[in-house]
Design a protein around this nucleic acid. Structure first.
Lengths: 337, 337
DNA sequence: CTGAAAGCGCTTACAG
DNA sequence: CTGAAAGCGCTTACAG
C-alpha cells in the first residue's frame, strides 16, 4: 500500500503538499498539483482512513440505529440512507435496536468511544427526553452530529428528517370522505408513538375540513404496535360491537391488511361494503387481493435529504430543525382504484 | 477522553503495561493488573479504535455486502449477522449490492483501502469465478478474510455458511409425496442461481427416493428470479397448458405465494385441489390465506456460526469450507396443516 | 515481569 | 506557495 510519502517521492514534492492537493485544502501550483495527482494515480494511492481519522480526531463511519431492520419500512430506509451516505464518502455502521430503549442508550454511550462521525436514529419508539437529553448534550459537545430519521426528535434538540405523515393521511382521508365512504375509522391510535401522532392529526384535520365531528368510537387503539395481528383483532372487535363503518384507515399497511383480512373473513365485500387504506407502501400491499391502497414514502428523496443535512451538520453549518418529505397516495383495489 | 497514558499514570505503571493488561497479551503481576483495571475503570477509559487500527494494521469493521436489504431473507440475515458480530466486538459496515456485479467488484476493490477487517458476501446472484478469483487472492494476501453467506462460494475458494437448502427441500417434497399430493411441480428453476441449485437437488432426490421419474414438464423456470410476479405467471401458464399437478414447490416463498394466488384466481381450492410449499419462512406467509407451508431458516444459529467462522479466520485458524445450517419445515394451511 | 522508544500513516500549525 | 517536524493514541519489538 502506497503512502503519502511514496506519492511525494514520485512527484518530487513533500508529503505536506501531497496531503494538501488530495484534500484540496490550500493553494498549490498547478504543475505540482498535476504531478501529485499523476503520482497518486500511478501508485494507486488510497489514504488510510484510520490514520486520517486518528490525526483529524474523527472517523468516516456514521452509525444507523434502526428500530427493526426486518420491518419493511426500516429496510427501505436503510437501503436509501446507506446509498446516500456512501455517495457522500461515509460508511454506514448498522445497529439493530430491536425496539430496545436500553440498547439505544448503550449504543449512544459507546458512540464517543467508537469515534463515530455521526449518528442517525431511525426509530418509531418513544425516546423519553428527560433521560436522553444529557446523552445528546454529551454528543453535541464532542461534535458528533445526531439526526432523527422517520421520527421527529425535536424534544431532544435533534434535527430530523421525516415523511409528511400528516399531509399524507389528510389526503387519504379526504379522498375517502369525498368518495362518500363515511364514516371512516382510524385504526392504530398509539398514544406514545411519535410517528403515529402526525397521522392521527391528519385524520382529524380531514374530518374537520369536511365538517364531520370526531367520533371516539371510531378511533381504535392498538396494543400491539403496528402489527398485522393487531389490525385483525381490532377490526374483529369493532365488527363484533356492531360498529358500522364504510372505510378504515390503518396507521400502517400491516394494520390495514390485518383489518381487511378480518372483514373478508366475515364475508364483507371490499371495497363495496368497506374500504381500506394503509400507510407505508410495503411490497405485499400490491400482491394481496384486493390490493391495498396506501400512502407511500419517497425513499430516494429521503436518503438524499438525510445526507445533505448530515453534511451540513458535519461542517458545523446550521440546518432546519425539521425536514419534511412528501408522501405519495397510491390507490389500489381496496378503495376501488 | 482518557488515553493509555492517563491510565498508566493513575495506576503508576507504564503505558506498555496498561496495553498489555487491557489486551491480555503478556503476563503481568496480579497487583499491577488490578491497579490498571481499576484506573481504567475510574477514568472510563475506552481505547481509540482508530489508533489501534493504525498501529495493528487492521480495523474493527467487517463489511456485509448484501444482495438486497429490502428482501425479507436478506434483512433477516443482516439482523442476525449484525448481532453476532457485535457480540464478538466487531462493527458491521453495511453495503447494499442491489444485485449489481459491478458494484460487488467495486466494493471488493475498495476493501483494502478501507482497511476492512473482513468481508461477508451475502448474495444469491452469480459470481463468475474467473473474474472474481484474482480479487479474492488479493484479499487473501492482505489477510482480509472473506466469507460467503447464503450462497456457497466454493468456486472462489471462500468458506461459506449456508442453510441446508437441499435437505430442507427434500423433506418438504417427501412430505408432499407421502401425503399423496403427486405429481409435484418445481417452480423457480433458475439455472445460474447457486442457492437454487441445492433446492432443486433436494427435489430430485425426494422423487428418486419415492421411485418417481422426473418429468421435465413439471420443472418450471423463472425468468424473474424469485419474485412473486414470476410465480403468478408461471403458474398461470402451466394451468393454461392444462398441466395437472397436485402440489407445487416454490423455490421461494414469493414464488409460491404468486403461484397460489394464480391457482385461487382460477377457482382451484387450496389445498384440496392443489397444495403449495414455499422456501424462506418470510413473514407474510403466515398472514396470507390459506397460510403458506414453508421451509424456514434458523437465523440465530446462522449468525452464531458466521461469527465463529470469522473469528477463526481472523486468527488464522483453519475453518471448514462449508458450514451447513439446518432448516425447519413449517406446515400451514396450504398443505392442509 | 517491565518500560523507553519507535513507528503505524496521516494532517497541520509553524516558519520560511 | 512549500516543507520539516510534531503529534494524533496506540502496540510491540527490544533491552533489561
Amino acid at each position: 500500500m502506497a503512502t503519502v510519502f511514496d506519492v511525494a517521492q514520485r512527484a518530487g514534492v513533500s508529503a505536506t503538499t501531497v496531503s494538501r492537493v488530495l484534500l484540496g485544502r490550500n493553494i498549490v501550483t498547478p504543475e505540482k498539483r498535476a504531478r501529485v495527482l499523476e503520482a497518486a494515480k500511478a501508485l494507486g494511492y488510497q489514504p488510510n482512513p484510520m490514520a486520517q481519522g486518528l490525526r483529524m480526531g474523527r472517523g468516516h463511519s456514521v452509525a444507523l440505529l434502526v428500530g427493526d431492520i426486518e420491518q419493511n419500512i426500516y429496510s427501505a430506509l436503510t437501503k436509501h440512507v446507506q446509498a446516500a451516505f456512501e455517495a457522500s464518502g461515509f460508511e454506514l455502521l448498522l445497529f439493530n435496536l430491536g425496539h430496545s430503549q436500553d440498547r439505544l442508550r448503550g449504543l449512544l454511550e459507546r458512540a464517543v468511544a467508537l469515534r463515530l462521525r455521526g449518528i442517525c436514529i431511525a426509530s418509531g419508539d418513544v425516546i423519553p427526553a428527560r433521560e436522553f437529553k444529557p446523552l445528546m448534550h454529551g454528543l453535541a459537545e464532542r461534535h458528533i452530529p445526531v439526526i432523527g430519521l422517520h421520527q421527529r426528535l425535536d424534544g431532544l434538540g435533534v434535527p430530523s428528517v421525516a415523511h409528511d405523515d400528516g399531509a399524507g393521511t389528510f389526503r387519504a382521508i379526504q379522498h375517502l370522505i369525498r368518495s362518500g365512504r363515511t364514516p371512516v375509522a382510524y385504526l392504530g391510535r398509539i398514544k406514545y408513538s411519535a410517528t403515529g401522532r402526525e397521522r392521527f392529526r391528519g385524520y382529524q384535520a380531514a374530518l374537520a375540513e369536511a365538517g364531520i365531528a370526531e367520533d371516539p368510537a371510531l378511533v381504535w387503539e392498538s396494543q400491539q404496535r403496528y402489527r398485522y395481528e393487531a389490525g385483525y383483532e381490532e377490526m374483529s372487535r369493532a365488527l363484533d360491537r356492531g360498529i358500522a363503518v364504510r372505510a378504515v384507515f390503518g396507521a400502517s399497511d400491516e394494520l390495514a391488511l390485518g383489518a381487511m383480512a378480518a372483514a373478508l373473513d366475515r364475508g364483507l365485500r371490499v371495497p363495496e361494503d368497506i374500504a381500506f387504506v394503509g400507510f407505508g407502501g410495503i411490497g405485499w400491499g400490491q400482491h394481496v387481493r384486493p390490493s391495498l391502497t396506501t400512502i407511500a414514502g419517497d425513499w430516494p428523496e429521503f436518503g438524499k435529504r438525510v445526507s445533505e443535512i448530515f453534511l451540513a451538520l458535519d461542517e458545523g453549518k446550521p440546518v432546519p430543525r425539521r425536514s419534511v418529505i412528501e408522501t405519495r397516495f397510491i390507490e389500489r383495489q381496496s378503495t376501488g382504484g
